[in-house]
C-alpha cells in the first residue's frame, strides 16, 4: 500500500494552506472554519491552530455532519447506513467567509451536500473549499480552492486518510482495487 503523504508532509501541507488562506483573504477577518465530519473536522481544528500561530487571532471553528443531506441516503441498496453525528456551528455564518474543510475530494457529492447544509444555516459572504487530497473523478461542477495534494487515481483505487485524532497516526494511503469504505 503506497503511502502518499506521511505525517511530516501532512503537517507541512496544512502550514502551506494556512499561509495561502491568509494571503488570499488578506488576513483572517470574517473567516470561519467548518470541517465536514469526521476527518474534515480534525483538519479544520488543526488549521485553526496554525492560523492562530500566523495571525494571532482565533478563527471560529465548527463541525458539519452532512448525512441528512446526502443524495444517496435512501438509495443505498446494501451496506451500512452512515451514523448521523451532531453538527456544531455555535456562531452565525451570515456575512462570514467560510473555509469548508474535507479530507478527500472525489465525486463532489459530499461537497454539494455540505453547501446545501451551510446555506440552511445562513447567508455567508463566500465559501472556499479546502481539501487534503483531490483524487479527481468529479461528477458535479465543483472545484477546490486549496488543495493539499492532487492525486491522480483510477476508479478502482481508494484513498484512505488516517489522522492522529481518530486513527492514531497521520497518513494518506492509496489502496489498489476493491472498495474499502472510508473517506472517499
Amino acid at each position: 500500500m503506497p503511502v502518499v503523504l506521511d505525517a511530516d508532509r501532512i503537517g507541512r501541507t496544512l502550514t502551506r494552506i494556512s499561509h495561502e488562506i491568509v494571503e488570499r483573504n488578506r488576513g483572517v477577518e470574517d473567516l470561519v472554519l467548518i470541517g465536514v465530519r469526521t476527518r474534515g473536522d480534525h483538519l479544520a481544528r488543526r488549521l485553526a491552530r496554525t492560523l492562530r500561530d500566523i495571525s494571532g487571532q482565533d478563527i471560529p471553528t465548527g463541525a458539519l455532519d452532512i448525512t441528512l443531506y446526502r443524495d444517496d441516503l435512501m438509495r443505498q441498496a446494501v451496506g451500512p447506513r452512515a451514523i448521523v453525528r451532531k453538527t456544531e456551528i455555535p456562531f452565525s455564518i451570515d456575512g462570514r467567509r467560510i473555509l469548508l474543510v474535507d479530507d478527500v475530494l472525489y465525486t463532489g457529492r459530499t461537497t454539494r451536500a455540505a453547501l446545501d447544509a451551510l446555506i440552511d444555516f445562513g447567508r455567508p459572504k463566500n465559501i472556499q473549499l479546502i481539501v487534503l487530497v483531490d483524487r479527481g473523478h468529479r461528477e458535479l461542477p465543483i472545484k477546490a480552492d486549496y488543495v493539499g495534494k492532487n492525486l491522480p487515481t483510477s476508479l478502482e483505487e481508494s484513498v484512505q486518510v488516517y489522522l492522529e485524532e481518530s486513527d492514531g497516526r497521520d497518513e494518506v494511503v492509496l489502496q489498489p482495487g476493491g472498495e474499502q469504505g472510508g473517506a472517499a
Partner: peptide, 16 residues
C-alpha cells in the same frame, strides 16, 4: 442527539 441539534437551527429542516 444529532436530531436535537437540527431543531435548534434557524432553518429547522433537513432533506433526509
Amino acid at each position: 442527539e444529532a436530531m436535537k441539534e437540527v431543531g435548534e437551527r434557524p432553518i429547522k429542516k433537513v432533506p433526509a
